[in-house]
Every structure is written in C-alpha cells, then in structure tokens.
C-alpha cells in the first residue's frame, strides 16, 4: 500500500510541476503580448481608467509610477508573474469585469462540450472497435480502417463546417450555432467525437484482438466458459486498460479541438473566449483563458494517470 501512495505522490508531483510550467509560459507569453502592443502602455491604462477625454500626460506618468511601468522589463516580468502566482488575473480590458467571473461561467460550457465529445467518441468507437476486433481483417475491419485514415486527416473545424452544412443547414435536424439547449450540444460533440473515435476505434480493436489471442482467453474457453461470458468477464475488462491510457494521449487533441470547434459553433466556452480575446487584444482575458485551458489539460492528465493506476495493479510498482 505504501508503494501505491508513493507512486500516486510521484504522479501528483510531476503534474504539479507541469502546472507551474504552464502558468509560467502563459504568463511570459501574455507579458510579451502586452509589450508587443503598439503605443505606450501607461497612456493606454490611464485612458482606460479615467476616460479618453479626462486623462493627460500627468495622469499617464502617475500610472507609470504606480504600476512600475518605468522599471526594467525583467522587474516588470517578475511583478507580472508574481500577480499570477497570487491568482490575480485582473479585469477584462474589454468588458471591465473580473476575468475570474467570466471564466467561471465559460468553464462549465467547455467541460460540457469536452464531456460530450468523449461520450460521443465512446458511442462510436466502442461498438466498432469491439466488432472489428472480434473479426479482424474482415470486410468491416478494412472499411473502418480506410474510414479511420480518412477521418484522421480531416481537421476538427473542417469536419464541423461539413457537419453544419449537412445536418443543420440542409437537413435542419440540429441548430447551427450558439447555446440554447442540449440539442446544441450534439453537433459540436460529434464533430470532436468523430475525430477522437477515428483513432480510438483502432485502439479498441487492437486491444480486443490482443485479448482474444491471449492464453488466458483460450484457458477460459477450454474450461468451458461460454464465448459471451469470456468476452464480457475477461476480454473487455483487459482490453479497457489501453483504451483508458489512450484517452490520455487524446487529451491534447481534445483541448485543441475545444478551442477551434467552439468558434465554429459559437459555443460560449473558454476556447471561444480565448480566440475572441486574442482578436480584441484583451490581454487579461487571453492570460486567464489560456491559463485555465492549460491547467484543465494538466488536471485531466492527472485524472487519467490516477485512473490507470486504479485499474492496473502493475502500474503501482
């Protein structure tokens, strides 16, 4: 048991370090964005505070002194990261509201979409993977292989456009964009889910083929266990480990997909907000949303690590 806790602690430490690195990278890039903006930051902030008509050079100088904008950039970067370390994300430069409040509402939508995408990918990948794994190199297997290769080459946002054109515009089955109810969730979830399933159905298939080929499967059959019971009790359980491990590999695709697909469907989540903030030069929002997405990535990875240790005792050593 102590070994188990030791390995869990190692996972926590590694992912904690990753979270710190994410925060530092996001902080440095946002700081660079701030400094790449044309014009004098002190004037811009003073104008934002007092209004464009009410400010003058003296006000700008006061702001410069107050915020330390005349310090060398190394000192400014240190202060910037210091604020980040205190979870002070500041206010949105466009909306004027605290960034944390904006993110709190958006995060729920993004998690909903990510969850929907994973569920959609499992709905597609599990039946196909099991069916092809039980009859490898059959007709279905070869057709799904070709389809998987093709769908893997289709970027998520291009797939989204095509799905919108077919299912929302031509067939009018689902709403095109926005969020009014759960019917809005279906198209974006399947857009991401199909991309995930294009690879994961092959992982399921290979896992099932391996399990069906194993000695213990043969033993279960020879001792008289029916084919159905062997499948449900032994094969699928053993095949689930590579599948869960693979979800971890797909997390990067999922987070990237959320950013772009939310924009296609005008989904009110964090990815959409990040893209909007970059377009509107709202640096506080860029920093907040990018940091949240990065930390979400770390947190989901941590969940997968721990799940793998939970399923497979061999990982605990």
């Amino acid at each position: 048991m102590t070994d188990f806790f030791k390995s869990v602690f190692a996972v926590l430490a590694a992912r904690g370090l990753q979270a710190v690195i994410v925060a530092i990278i996001v902080g440095i890039v946002s700081f660079a964005m701030m400094h790449a903006l044309p014009g004098d930051a002190a004037y811009r902030i003073a104008a934002g505070r007092y209004g464009y008509d009410m400010m003058d050079a003296a006000a700008a100088e006061a702001v410069r002194l107050e915020l330390g904008l005349d310090n060398p950039w190394m000192v400014q970067l240190w202060d910037w990261l210091g604020q980040l370390a205190q979870f002070d994300l500041g206010n949105s430069l466009v909306y004027g509201t605290p960034v944390v409040d904006e993110i709190a509402t958006q995060l729920g939508y993004s998690l909903l979409l990510a969850g929907g995408a994973v569920v959609a990918s499992l709905i597609i990948a599990l039946p196909i993977g099991i069916a092809t794994g039980l009859a490898p190199n059959g007709l279905l297997d070869r057709v799904t292989l070709g389809l998987s290769v093709f769908l893997r080459a289709v970027p998520a946002f291009a797939l989204g456009i095509v799905l919108v054109l077919i299912f929302a515009v031509q067939l009018k089955l689902f709403p095109v964009a926005g969020f009014r109810g759960l019917e809005n969730l279906i198209l974006p979830s399947f857009t991401l889910g199909i991309g995930l399933a294009a690879v994961s159905n092959r992982v399921v298939r290979d896992a099932v083929v391996d399990a069906m080929n194993s000695d213990w499967q043969m033993f279960a059959r020879t001792k008289g266990l029916s084919a159905r019971l062997t499948l449900t009790r032994h094969v699928l359980r053993n095949a689930s480990l590579p599948v869960v491990t693979y979800v971890g590999v797909q997390l990067a695709y999922l987070i990237e997909g959320v950013v772009i697909v939310e924009t296609v469907f005008a989904w009110p989540g964090i990815g959409h907000a990040l893209v909007h903030a970059i377009f509107g030069r709202d640096i506080a929002m860029v920093q907040g949303t990018a940091l949240t997405l990065g930390l979400l990535y770390v947190a989901l990875n941590l969940c997968v690590d721990l799940a793998c240790r939970g399923i497979d005792p061999r990982e605990r050593v």
Binding site: M33, E256, I260, A290
Partner: peptide, 15 residues
C-alpha cells in the same frame, strides 16, 4: 506542458 495548438495560438497572438 501545453497542447501544441494552444501554444502556437498564444505565440502567434504576440503579433
């Protein structure tokens, strides 16, 4: 530490 496209997005957003 960050998903690739997110990093590209941030770096491209500097300019």
């Amino acid at each position: 530490a960050l998903p690739g496209l997110l990093l590209v997005l941030m770096l491209a957003a500097i300019s």
